[in-house]
Amino acid sequence: MLRIALFVLTNLAIMLVLSVVASIFGLDRWAYAHAGINLTGMLVFCALFGVGGSFISLLMSKTMAKMSVGAQVIASPRNAAEQWLFDTVARHAKNAGIGMPEIAVYDAPEMNAFATGASRNHALVAVSTGLLQGMGRDEVSAVLGHEISHVANGDMVTLALIQGVVNTFVMFLARVLGGIVDNAISGNRDDRGGGYGIGYFVITMVLQTVLGVLATMIVMGFSRWREFRADAGGAKLGGRANMIAALRTLSGDHGDAGLPKALVAFGIAGDGGVARLFTSHPPIAERIAALQEAEPA
């Protein structure tokens, strides 16, 4: 809750500072005179949609995740395997200082697991049947520690906050630049009844797409960084050797193939493909190297 409160205050401060700067340098008056744009109003509008949409996605994340992969929540263990899974998650959650998350299993041949949820104490940890069948229990324990670490670190919330800020500025800059370019192409806005031409909407959509691609690099950069932290957490909770062994096992399995696009960033495997700047996970070889370098001499 404190993280969200600080985020809201930070964004209000950013909006206030930008408004003051625009007023001092006359940018707001220039934008209104040349493109009919109220910068403060536009920034507030974009923040409501950018941040609001990100938060709505976060609040719906558990429900959508379970629906998208057909995950079955283990309310009460029905056999020894489920009891072990339940006990392992409970032990990791206690050691990480978070509330007991929901535990779910989904049917998929790929070895993967993911965690999601709107808060540290109301999260979901899901594992694939492929993971349970393809790894030993020590390795699965380390993977579960990795996912629990994501929850304990507040990664789902932080990623949503970063995405919200990025969405806001992509929408804002696209519309401001779109208005300026459209006005320069179309001439005085008053001659057209003060409205925007079709060119404005085309230009804005193109700019939003281009800026969105660039902004994705920022979000994915954070996602890659948090994977190293979660690996370290998995090593602490489940054993460093087990975490390294689990990553080595994953290196031969395309674990994200069975996850919807919206959940790829929350999975354990990642692809680490050629387009490095746009991947949510670092290459597994780098993750293993980071764990090995962190070992005591």
Rank of each mutant, 00 (worst) to 15 (best):
A80L: 02
L16K: 04
A75T: 09
S61A: 14
G50V: 03
S128Y: 11
A65Y: 05
Q83P: 08
G117L: 05
D107N: 15
L58I: 06
G50S: 00
F86G: 05
V8D: 04
P109A: 13
Q83H: 06
A90Y: 07
H92V: 01
V21C: 15
N38I: 05
A118H: 12
T40N: 11
T88E: 02
D87S: 11
F7V: 06
V69Y: 01
S57K: 15
K94A: 12
F114M: 07
T63S: 13
K66I: 08
V125P: 08
S68P: 06
F25Q: 07
S19V: 08
Q83L: 10
A108L: 09
R29D: 11
L6I: 12
A96W: 07
A113G: 09
A113E: 11
V17Y: 13
V125Y: 12
A126P: 08
F114H: 04
G117S: 12
L59V: 10
G97F: 09
G36H: 02
V51A: 00
S23A: 15
H34W: 10
V125M: 12
S19F: 10
I14W: 14
M42K: 05
W84Y: 11
I103D: 02
H34E: 11
T88Q: 12
K94F: 03
M60S: 14
V73S: 12
V51N: 05
H34L: 07
F45W: 07
A33C: 03
S61H: 02
S61Y: 02
A108W: 07
I103W: 07
M100N: 00
F45S: 02
G36T: 01
N79C: 03
W84D: 02
L85V: 00
S119D: 15
I56H: 13
R29T: 01
N121W: 00
S76Q: 14
V21G: 10
R3T: 13
M100L: 14
A90D: 08
A123L: 01
R91T: 07
P77M: 03
V20T: 13
T88V: 09
A96L: 04
N79T: 01
A80Y: 06
L43G: 03
S19E: 11
E110P: 00
S68R: 01
K94D: 10
A75Q: 11
A31D: 00
Q83R: 13
M15V: 13
L85F: 06
T40Q: 10
V8Q: 01
S57M: 14
S19M: 11
L27P: 03
F55L: 15
F114S: 04
I24E: 11
L58V: 08
P77V: 02
T40F: 14
S68E: 09
M60P: 02
Q72V: 13
A31Y: 04
F55R: 03
A31P: 03
Q83K: 12
L124Q: 08
A22M: 12
S119K: 06
G52E: 08
A31C: 06
T116V: 08
N112K: 11
